[in-house]
Amino acid sequence: MDSRKKEGQMKTIDILEKKTSRRSFMKKLSIAAAAGSAGLVAGGCVGTSESTEEMGLKWEEYFKKNYRMMTPEEKDETVVRLEKLAKLQDGVDIQMSNQEPQEKVLFGYAFNISRCKGYMDCVEACVQENNLDRNSKTQYIRIFEMDSGQQDPTSGDGKYHHEVPVENKYYMGIQCFHCENAPCIRACPTKATWREPDGIVVVDYDWCIGCRYCMAACPFWGRRFNWGKPEVPKEEINTKQHYLGNRKRMKGAMEKCTFCVQRTRQGKLPACADACPTGSRVFGNLLDPDSEIRYVLKHKKVFRFKEELGTDPKFWYFMD
């Protein structure tokens, strides 16, 4: 054993000490590159049971552009490819949409802290709707049990599990606030995250390199990282998907609340607002003076969490 170890050490030292000329270095590099790309091509064929169709789809998927750079045709193509891949890889029939934002719509959200009872129906509905990883128990929403008089969720209990509501406590939900001036967008080095014209901050999961700068930049703990391969039981997969929303994520990709883009662009409420049994969650079009959210902003006492940071969140808290 010992001698073999020594041999290995000798070899590494040898390589380190050996002086290489530029020419030979370049030569080796080009050989390595050629071998590498050959491996990429051959990799699919050898030792796996992948069909040619699946390989072809994956190949085309690999070279697609950032979602914002795609033409409408390219968007349609990638959506079709992803539907086919879901069928081939997971045996699930999904309907993926790439629906564009509606004109004259800017989504906003209000949360009634005097009505929320901490039942967490919203959290569960969100997990189901957005195909969140069941392994790591990823959740976009966190409800904090707060002492009255406190406004900072860090003073509250974010992992309570007892009968709710408790007397003299109130409940405050935190999720992505879809800031107009979002620090996460500026932090992203690959422009994989941006704000859509209807105000939703989205991620192109295929362009995310997993550096987690956005996670560090967000003052509201709004982003979630896939440390492992996200897993959802086949029978629980929500098949109504959107390219920028609840489609399958991969290991190493960042994800976040998208105001349920797959629902809201069709005129539906986000899953959390739809599931809330207490009516604490108000969602609507901020540009419509008749909308419920505008009524709340006009007639109720509202505040935004950490407004002084200037990120301009589109998420208000209000009380009766």
Binding site: D121, I143, V164, P165, K268, G279, N285
Partner: peptide
């Protein structure tokens, strides 16, 4: 949120005879 506005009635959420919300275990945990 769009289309014709359809809202819940008072009695859709509140029992008229005992209108306060009950205490119960949360749906899930974090």
């Amino acid at each position: 949120w769009a289309g014709e506005r359809v809202i819940r009635n008072c009695t859709s959420c509140h029992s008229p005879h005992s209108p306060a919300f009950k205490t119960k275990m949360p749906e899930t945990y974090s």
